[in-house]
Amino acid sequence: MSEPTRSGRVHLSSLVRTWLGGIVIGLLILIAIFAPWIAPHDPLKQDLFSGLMAPFWLDNHDPAYLLGTDSLGRDVLSRLIYGTQIALVVAFIAASLAALLGTVLGLLAGYYGGWLDTVVSRLVEIWMAFPPVLLSIVLVAVIGTGLHSVVIAIVIIDWTRFCRVVRAETLVQREQEYISSAVSIGFERWTILWREILPNVLPLLVTLLTLEMGIAVIVEAILSFVGLSVSSDQATWGGLIQEGRQYVHSAWWVMSLPMICIIIAVLAFNALGDGLRTILDPVMRK
């Protein structure tokens, strides 16, 4: 990446990726906000006479249902649009809270070291020994279903991702000359942590945060799939997959379309994160 001859190309493609990711995420946010106005149908309204209708490019479709209907005759497009709301709310809130918790613990453990580092590091190791999906299912089963439970489950499981990386990077930064220099100048530890170390960890953190948003979308889908997310009268992508699974032989689109939505959202988050990392790094920016 540091080769001067190639930096131009790296710069351009990362810029393109950032924009692509950003635009897709922006569109998803708009869709989520304006769902009631965009959705052609009520996502919960059943029409048992027109169940399992095909989407518009196949035979046996109804122009009223652009992407077909599920087994109960509910409009797939409207359900996908409303599903965006849950997916994004979970992605933003859960990922941010996990990042906050993990970063604070990682910074403190990495900078202060000693017993604090030992406690945090062991905790992370124990945490990561649990299979994350099973842990989340158990967690939600214990604290009950609902949006807040999904968020809490994701935060409790995924703070370790941030903690590990931030701690490792803090350890690297702590040994740098400019930190010794800051210590000898007489800045307080808290100031050094906040003003010297955190900005150096930030590019990494932003990348992780956007990646985590993608992961949160998937975890929410998994929990919806097993029926442990929000209540079943709310449309979610994972819920759609679960319902579509039963009819996958006769109506593959009911299951496939929400999967495509998840893939697009996760890819967009990843592209955005990767691009932001480059943009936030002053060396790469030039």
Partner: peptide, 10 residues
Amino acid sequence: DPMTSLNPVR
């Protein structure tokens, strides 16, 4: 070493 003694991101 003046290369490493300033904070690179500030």
